[in-house]
Design a protein around this nucleic acid. Sequence first.
DNA 1: CTGTTAGCGCTTTCAA
DNA 2: TTGAAAGCGCTAACAG
Lengths: 341, 341
Amino acid sequence: MLTDADSTAPAVTLELIAREAGVSPSTVSRILNGTAKVSADKRLAVEQTIARFNFQPNAMARSLAKGQTYTIGVLTQFIESPFYGEALRGIEDALRRTAYSPLFVSGHWNLAEEEAKMRLLQGRRVDGVIVLTGRLGDEQLLDYAQRLPIVVTGRQLSGPRLVSVDVDDFHGAREATRHLIELGHTRIAFISGPADHPDANERLRGYRQAHVDAGLALVSELVVPADFMETGGMLAIQQLLESRQNFTAVFAANDQMAYGARLALYRRNLRVPDDISLVGYDDLPNSTYLMPPLTTVRQPVYEIGRLAAQAMLKLIAGEAAEIAAPPLELVVRESTRRVRH
Amino acid sequence: MLTDADSTAPAVTLELIAREAGVSPSTVSRILNGTAKVSADKRLAVEQTIARFNFQPNAMARSLAKGQTYTIGVLTQFIESPFYGEALRGIEDALRRTAYSPLFVSGHWNLAEEEAKMRLLQGRRVDGVIVLTGRLGDEQLLDYAQRLPIVVTGRQLSGPRLVSVDVDDFHGAREATRHLIELGHTRIAFISGPADHPDANERLRGYRQAHVDAGLALVSELVVPADFMETGGMLAIQQLLESRQNFTAVFAANDQMAYGARLALYRRNLRVPDDISLVGYDDLPNSTYLMPPLTTVRQPVYEIGRLAAQAMLKLIAGEAAEIAAPPLELVVRESTRRVRH
DNA sequence: CTGTTAGCGCTTTCAA
DNA sequence: TTGAAAGCGCTAACAG
C-alpha cells in the first residue's frame, strides 16, 4: 500500500479548485485577483475549497500569463554588509503590504559578477532593479533601463526609466573635517578608501577642501590609503605612526576603518579622544557602542533604501519619479575633543 | 515617427531566436540545456543569434515547463542581521556555480510573518527552503517537508525530507562560564536572552551547570533578563549595579548585549577586564574590534549556512543528507582576566 | 456575473 | 539529429 508521502499527490492547481468548487477556472482567477464581481455563493464555495486544499497559486504561471513577476531585483554588494543591510531593510519595509517582493543578489564589488547577477535578474524577469552602488558603468545602467526600470544609488544619473539617489560625500567629509578643525586640530590624518571606489575620492576631496577653506596646509604624508576594512584601518595607523608625522586627529573614510584604527591606537596606548580624536564615516549601527562612541557622518541608508523602493514602485506604475538626496549629518559623539596644547 | 524607446519592441523569445537562426524551438532549447546532440552548424547559428539579440531565456516559462524553479528559499529573521548575514553568505557561496540561486525573505522572529513568508516561497514554487531558526513549530516544519525539502537550523529534528543543524548552546555557555570560573571568578553575572527564545534558555542552563560543576552557589539576583539587543545589555548592567550585588565578571548571552554592557561599564568607570571580566556569545565580526577585543563563544554561522545549502542540494537531488553539528569554540581574547583579590 | 478559448515562453515526448 | 505538437498553471479577452 502506498502511503501519502509515497503516492504522487495530484498537484493542486487552480483548475482543480475550480472543478471541486463547481465553477470555471476563470471564476477562481477572478476571486484570487479581485478582477470582477463574483456571486457570493460561488465565492464562498471557492474560498472553502481553496482553504480545504491549502491552495497556493503558482506564481510562475501567473507571471508568465501576466507578463509581470511582481518582484523587484536588488543588486547589493555583500549580503552580510551591516551598511547595505540597512538599505535592504528599508526596501523590505517599503515593499511590505504591496504586491511586490524583493529578490536580493550580491555583486561583491566585482563588475563581472554584477553583470552576471543583472543577467540572472533579467532571466527571472524582475519588474525592475534597484542597484546599490557597485561598479556598473553609467552607460550600462542606461542601457539596462531601456528594458526595465532602474533605480541606482551612489551616483547621479537619470533617464527615461532610470532614477538615482546620491548623497553628497564631498560635503559630508568636508563637514567632518571642519568639525575637527574647529576643535583646534591642524594635523589631521586621513585614512582613505580604495582609489577606484567612487565614494572614496569624494570623501578625500572633502577632507582636502576643508583644509583649503581653513587655510591649512595639506600634508600628503598624513593621507594614507586603505581598503575600507577594519584591518586597513589598523595598518594605516601603524603606517602613520611609523612615518613619525605628528597628528592629533584621525578621520577614517568609513566606520569600519575607524574601528580598526581605534584598536590600533589602543594597542599603542594612545587614548581616544584624549590623545587622538577619531572620526568615522557611515554611522554603522555599532558605532554608538564603540568606545568611546564614535563621532561620524551619518548616512541615511535605511531611508535611501525606502526611497529607492518607493521610486521603483512609481517607475513600474509608469509614473515619473525622482528622489531627493537625503542629507548627511555629522553625529558628534565622544571620540572627538578640543585639541590639547 | 516612433523612436526605439517608444515602439513596442517584439519580446525576444526562444521562438524568435529559432526563427532567426532557421531552426526549430526545440533545437534552441536543446542547445540551451545541453539536452541532446546538435549539429555544429546549427549550434553556431543559434549561438550567434542568441548573442545578437542578447537573448535571456525566460526563467518563469522554464520553471513552469520543468516543474522546477532552481531557486532555494531562505527564511532568515532580519535581513540586516550581522549574525545571520554570515549564514546567508555561506549559502550564497555554496550555491555559486550551481544552477540554483537563493531567495532571501525575513520573518522578524514573528510566527505570523514567518508563515506568510513560507506561503510566499511556496507560491514562488521554490525547490526547497532553508529555515534559519525562527519560531515555526516542529510539526509545522514537518508538515512543510511533506511538500518540499526543508533544512532548518537551531533545533534537532528530522524526517523524510527534513534535515536540521543545531549547535550545542548548553555546552558553549557552560564552557564560557567555566573559563570565568577557572580565572577565579565566583560571582558571575549573567545577562540572559528573551525567555521565549529557544537558544536563550540553553545558554542559561549552561551557565548554571558550570556553577553546579564547580560547586558554586547560584545567585538568582545575578541573572538578569534582557532582549539580545545592545540596549538590553546596558539596562542589565544598570540593574545589576543598582542591585548592589557584588560581581567580578559578566557573561552576556550574546555579543550584542555584551557591547551594550561594555558601554554601560565604561560609563560607570568600570574597567574591562581590570575591574570586570566580560564574555559574549556568537563572535560577531565586530567582536575582534571591541575594546578590548571580546572573549566570546564562536558560532560557526558561515559554515552552518554552507552546510545547510549543501544538504539542501542533496535533498533536492533526492539523496539522503545530514549535517554534523559544527563545534562551538571559546575564543579567549582580552576582555577576561584572572580575578583580583 | 460566468464560462470558453487562446495564449504567456519554454520543455519534452513522439515521430521522422 | 531535428521538428511538430502538446502541455506546464494561470490570465484575459470575448461571448453570453
